[in-house]
């Protein structure tokens, strides 16, 4: 649905993105992940025809962003980082204006607006002035605007930034509900958000794509060095002696904690949880806790972005 090929964009001397390429399938939610100033907004602005790239090309819904810019804009809904709201208009007036901009026919105006108001749960505030609304409502008005005319492609730039936890959950639910009917690109620097809402993730750092995969695969990629963490009752030496003979353990560290407890960290490329538990119990030591420390997207993100820094 969206094909991005070698996008590069300079702001004067400064390079914002360089050679960004990725692909989004129809009905998929893609997360653009990266620290601030990584080039997420620039990429999105190019895809929505707000500005052209310095080089590279992209097609959105089969339309070229240069040659068929009007078609791209017609089928795309866009929520910029700062929702583009006229603070003096009421929600209804504002949506009416955007609907007219998008060229919705007169006969469909009302039903279109009603639909997005319902989707974004704005029924209570539709007659209120936007400037007087809370940040969460403003964000939802921005989102409602991007949903007008039922666009095939929706591009959301940091849709949950500045919202409280409850509002964040609401917006995420809303975005999840778009799956299937719409193709969505969503940018964020918040990892759990991308992990929860997106089917695929593109990680951008310093203007370059450093990884592209599903959240699960990205997590698995670093799984080779999975850690098992245990809390065991017993002295440092006995615990070490008991556990060391187990096969497939690459590395083990034992640190004493309070109340005669020790914290054990085991690194292994096989699942040795059963063997560990058996060994502890057989030797009469108390097993209080055993967890697998999976690498979260956060670790991968940090891993990838710090690695990138070293290269540069």
């Amino acid at each position: 649905m969206i094909d991005v090929e070698g996008l590069t964009r300079y702001y004067g001397e400064k390079r914002a993105i360089s050679d960004v390429s990725f692909h989004v399938n129809k009905g998929e939610i893609l997360g653009l992940l990266g620290p601030n100033a990584a080039g997420k907004t620039t990429t999105m602005r190019i895809l929505t025809c707000y500005m052209p790239p310095t080089s590279g090309s992209a097609t959105v819904g089969g339309y070229d962003i240069f040659e068929q810019s009007m078609d791209v804009r017609r089928i795309t809904g866009y929520l910029p980082e700062n929702p583009p709201l006229y603070t003096e208009l009421t929600v209804d007036d504002y949506l009416l204006f955007v609907a007219q901009l998008k060229g919705i026919e007169k006969s469909r105006l009302k039903s279109e607006i009603d639909t997005v108001i319902e989707k974004a749960a704005l029924g209570d505030v539709r007659h209120r002035i936007i400037g007087k609304l809370s940040k969460g409502y403003k964000q939802r008005v921005g989102l409602a605007q991007s949903l007008l005319n039922n666009p095939q492609i929706i591009i959301l730039d940091e849709p949950t930034v500045g919202l409280d936890p409850k509002q964040i959950i609401e917006i995420r639910e809303l975005i999840k509900n778009l799956r299937g009917d719409h193709t969505v690109i969503l940018s964020s620097h918040i990892l759990p958000e991308v992990e929860q809402t997106c089917e695929r993730v593109v990680i951008i750092n310093e203007g370059r794509v450093v990884a592209e995969d599903t959240p699960e695969n990205l997590t698995n990629r670093l799984r080779g060095s999975e850690r098992i963490i245990m809390q065991v009752e017993g002295s440092e030496e006995t615990v070490k002696k008991t556990l060391q003979p187990i096969a497939d353990i690459q590395n083990i560290t034992v640190k004493p904690e309070n109340n005669g407890l020790v914290r054990v960290e085991v690194e292994s490329d096989k699942d040795v949880r059963k063997e560990l538990a058996n060994a502890v119990v057989k030797n009469g030591l108390g097993l209080l806790e055993l967890t697998v420390d999976r690498f979260t997207l956060e670790d991968i993100f940090l891993h990838l972005t710090t690695k990138e820094e070293e290269v540069a």
Partner: peptide, 13 residues
Amino acid sequence: RLGTVELLYTSPI
């Protein structure tokens, strides 16, 4: 100032 240029420039007008 409001950032609504982004809306105008990305609308089909």
